[in-house]
């Protein structure tokens, strides 16, 4: 079956979408990623969409779902590499992507995730114990 590969880099899961996704493939990715976050105890998910020539409402919703589901499982999601023409188009389409964190490229996305992971670790260590 056709699948989008998910790579593991430390506590981060990396996905680079290189194909023109049909809707079922997008749903499969969403399901696979949530399963992998649990299995690999991931703290962050980085989705590279620099190869995507288009983001429509379905793919936008999938990205939002992944961000919300990973959040519920204790992981942060960052979407990176959106093309300028795609950014212009989704704004006119009316997709807000307000629940999805974005970064310009993979490098910045990984920095963002590492910071988020460190912060959430600090939060846990500074929590008062025994209350």
């Amino acid at each position: 079956m056709e699948k989008i590969p998910i790579l593991k880099l430390g506590e981060i899961l990396l996905v680079s979408i290189q194909v023109d996704m049909h809707d079922r493939l997008a749903i499969t990715l969403q399901d696979d990623l949530t399963a992998r976050i649990v299995k690999d105890r991931a703290r962050g998910v980085l989705i590279d969409i620099s190869s995507l020539e288009m983001v429509d409402s379905f793919i936008g919703r999938m990205l939002g779902n992944i961000a919300a589901m990973s959040q519920a499982l204790g992981a942060q999601t960052v979407v990176v590499g959106m093309r300028p023409a795609v950014a212009i188009t989704i704004v006119e389409l009316g997709l807000s992507m307000q629940n999805v964190r974005t970064a310009l490229n993979v490098e910045r996305g990984i920095e963002m995730l590492q910071r988020a992971v460190e912060e959430s670790e600090e939060d846990t260590t500074h929590e008062p114990s025994g209350t």
């Binding site: 429509d56 379905f58 023409a85 188009t89």
Partner: peptide
């Protein structure tokens, strides 16, 4: 141009779906 292409392709995706 690229922006026009992207807009039309995105509209195509919505309406075809």
């Amino acid at each position: 141009g690229l922006v026009d292409q992207t807009k039309m392709v995105t509209a195509t995706s919505e309406l075809a779906r």
